[in-house]
Design a protein around this nucleic acid. Structure first.
Lengths: 343, 343
DNA sequence: ATGTCTCTTGTTACCGCTCACAATAGCGCT
DNA sequence: AGCGCTATTGTGAGCGGTAACAAGAGACAT
C-alpha cells in the first residue's frame, strides 16, 4: 500500500527554499504556529516562540509574501504612479512617501507613466495585477476608463500635487490656479506692468500660467507673452525662452517660470546680455529647489513642501489601511511666495 | 446527499473580482485556456482566442500576479535598492532602469536604504520576501550577512555605481578611484600646486577624495586640505566649506568637490568674496548635472552617464532573465572630465 | 469532581494561478 | 478505413501561505 510516498513523481521541483513547513517540522509544531510567531508573536507562548524563532534562523527562512498576499488578500504593498523621477519635486515627494510607508512595514511598487500620461491605462492594469493595498497617483486628471479601473480596484487612493479635479478618493496637494493668481497679484502689487510666462508643456504648469494670465487680464493687462517649452523644463530652455522674448525689441518686465531651473536660465541669460535683474527683468521660479536661495541674485520663487505632500499622502493611506477614517479627504498643503532678489 | 453545495459556509468571502474561472465559464473553456490566451496567445486557435478575449473584457478581468507568481515562481518583478531618490544621479539611473524594464514587461519594487546603509539587512529581507526575479543594488560594499542573503536568493543581481569591490554577480559602474586620480592628474598638469577636497560623507565620494589625495602625494604634495560634510552634499555646504578653508589666511588653489551642487556653492562663495574663478580658486564638480554648463562661469566637472548605468544594468538583468549569458559581468561606463571655465 | 470559560495550538479548506501530463481532435498517408 | 503523428485543449495537483473553526489544556468557581 503506497499510502503517501509524496514527492516522488508529479511533484514539481520545489525551489529548494525553506517554507513554513520546513520550519514547522524542525520546531516540531504546525505551520500555523510558525505563521503566528511571525505575524502575531504575542499570541504564542514565549517558550514556543523561542523554539520557532530559532528554527527560523537555522533554516534561513524567508516568508513568501506572494503566498501570504494571495491567501489573505493583503499585500503590504502600495503602488505609486509618477510621471518621472528626473524632476526633483516628484522624486522628493516619493522619497518622503516611501520613508513614511516603511515605518509601517509597507513597501512601494513604482510605476513611471511618462509625461503625456500615455500608457496610464496599461501601467495601471499592470500595477493592479499585483494587488497593492493602496495607490498613490500624481495629478487628478484621468481618463474616464482610468477612473473606472480605479474605482473597481476598491482600495484607498490618494491623488497628489493637484486639487483641480474632483478626487477619486483622497487628495493631497495645492491649487495651481491659486499659485498663478498669487504670482500675478504679487507682481502687480510690486508695480510691474509688463508680463510674460514661460511654462513647460505640462498640465499643472499650464494651469498656473493660464490663471496668471487670467488674473492679469482682470487687471486690464491683455498682452502677456506666453512661451511653452517641452516638459520637463530646464535651465537651457529658460535661457532660450528669454532669448526669444528679447529677439524683437527690448522687452522689460516680470516673468513667471514654471520651474526654478527655468528661472535660473532666465537670470543667467539676462546677466549675459547685460540686463539687470530685477531692474530690467524680474523673475519668479517654482519649487524652491536647493540652489534657489544661493544663486546670485537669490531667486524669488514659489515654495512647495514636496516632502509634506509625500508624507501626508502616506499618512492618509495608512490611516485608511488601519481601518480608520481620515479627517479630511482633501488636504491643501498650500504654497508660499518666497521673495528674494529677482523680483 | 449534500454532494457539492460549495460556497455556502466555511467559504471565505471571495473579493468579488473576476478570476480565470469567471472568464473560463463565460467563454465556455477551461481556466488553462484562458491562461494561455493571456500568456502564450500563439498557442491558442485564433477563433477561441477571440472568444476568450471578449470574455476577458466583458468581465473586466485583471490577472492576479500574486497567484501567478506563486505558481510559476516567476514574478516579473525586479527590485532596486537605492540610498536615496533626492540625489539626481541615483534617481536618474533608476528612471532609466525602470524605463528599460518596462519595455520587457517587468515592474520595479523600490527600496530606499538611507545613507549609512543602516537597515540594509531588513530591507533586503522584506524585498526578497516578494520573490523578485532580479535585483539592482547601489554600491558594491555589503555586510557579510547581506552577501550571504544575496547569494541564497539565487537570482541575477547587478550592483551599480561602483566597481571597487568584487561583485556578487554582475556590476555596472565606474571606478571612483580612477576619478580621483584623473582629477588630481588633471589639476596637476594644469599647473595648480595648492589643493583641497570637499567631500560628502558618503562611501563612494570618500573613495574619490582619498585617491585624489594619494595621487597628489605621489607628486610630492603632502598637505591637501580635506573637508567632509554630511551626505548628501548641497550648495550651502559648498559655500560653507570654502568659508572654512579661507577662514585662516588667504588660500588659493584647486578644489575637488564631490558634487556639482557643492561646486556651485564654492563658486558662489568665491565670487561673493571677490575672488576670481578659476584665477584664485579653481573648482571641479561631479555629476555634470543640468545646471553645470549654464553657470557663470560654466562649471568644470566629471561627467557620468547616469542613464547609461540604469539602462545597462537593466539590460544585463534582462539578458540573464531571458536565459542568456552576459558578455561581460563587469561593465565600466567610465567618466569624462569636462573642462569648462572654473578650472 | 464537574462543568464552564479562556487561552493556545492544530486541522482543513481554500486564495488564483501554472505545471506536467492526459485526452482529444485534426491531418496526411498508405 | 485505419494508422500514427502533431497541435490544441483539458485535468489534477500543487505553489506557500492564512482564515475560520475545532480541539485540547489549564484555571477557576461551584
Amino acid at each position: 500500500m503506497p499510502a503517501k510516498t509524496a514527492g516522488s513523481r508529479g511533484t514539481r521541483p520545489t525551489s529548494g527554499k525553506a517554507t513554513l513547513e520546513t520550519v514547522a517540522k524542525l520546531a516540531g509544531v504546525s505551520r500555523m504556529t510558525v505563521s503566528r510567531v511571525i505575524n502575531h508573536p504575542e499570541s504564542v507562548t514565549p517558550d514556543l516562540r523561542e523554539i520557532v524563532l530559532k528554527a527560523i534562523s537555522e533554516t534561513g527562512y524567508v516568508p513568501n509574501l506572494l503566498a501570504g498576499g494571495l491567501a489573505s488578500s493583503r499585500t503590504k504593498l502600495v503602488a505609486a504612479v509618477v510621471p518621472t523621477l528626473t524632476h526633483v519635486l516628484f522624486s522628493g515627494a516619493i522619497q518622503a512617501f516611501t520613508d513614511r510607508l516603511a515605518l509601517d512595514g509597507y513597501q512601494m511598487l513604482l510605476g513611471l507613466s511618462g509625461y503625456p500620461t500615455e500608457r496610464e491605462g496599461d501601467l495601471l492594469q499592470a500595477i493592479l495585477s499585483r494587488r497593492p493595498d493602496a495607490l498613490y497617483l500624481t495629478g487628478t486628471s484621468h481618463l474616464a476608463q482610468t477612473r473606472r479601473q480605479l474605482r473597481a480596484a476598491n482600495i484607498p487612493i490618494v491623488e497628489t500635487w493637484d486639487l483641480s479635479h474632483k478626487a477619486v478618493d483622497m487628495a493631497v496637494g495645492f491649487s495651481h490656479e491659486a499659485v498663478g493668481r498669487g504670482v500675478a497679484e504679487y507682481f502687480y502689487s510690486k508695480g510691474y506692468r509688463e508680463f510674460a510666462a514661460f511654462s513647460a508643456d505640462d498640465e499643472r504648469a499650464l494651469l498656473r500660467s493660464r490663471e496668471y494670465v487670467a488674473t492679469l487680464a482682470a487687471h486690464g493687462i491683455g498682452d502677456v507673452t506666453c512661451i511653452t517649452t517641452p516638459a520637463p523644463s530646464t535651465m537651457a530652455m529658460g535661457r532660450e525662452a528669454l532669448g526669444r522674448l528679447l529677439a524683437n525689441g527690448s522687452w522689460r518686465g516680470a516673468i513667471q517660470c514654471s520651474s526654478d531651473a527655468m528661472a535660473h536660465g532666465v537670470v543667467l541669460e539676462a546677466q549675459a546680455r547685460g540686463l539687470s535683474v530685477p531692474g530690467d527683468i524680474a523673475v519668479i521660479g517654482f519649487g524652491d529647489l536647493d540652489f534657489a536661495a544661493y544663486m546670485s541674485p537669490p531667486l524669488s520663487t514659489v515654495r512647495i513642501d514636496r516632502f509634506a505632500i509625500g508624507r501626508l499622502a502616506a499618512e492618509a493611506l495608512l490611516t485608511r489601511l488601519a481601518g480608520g477614517r481620515v479627517a479630511r479627504k482633501v488636504v491643501d498643503v498650500g504654497f508660499e511666495i518666497v521673495e528674494r532678489a529677482t523680483s
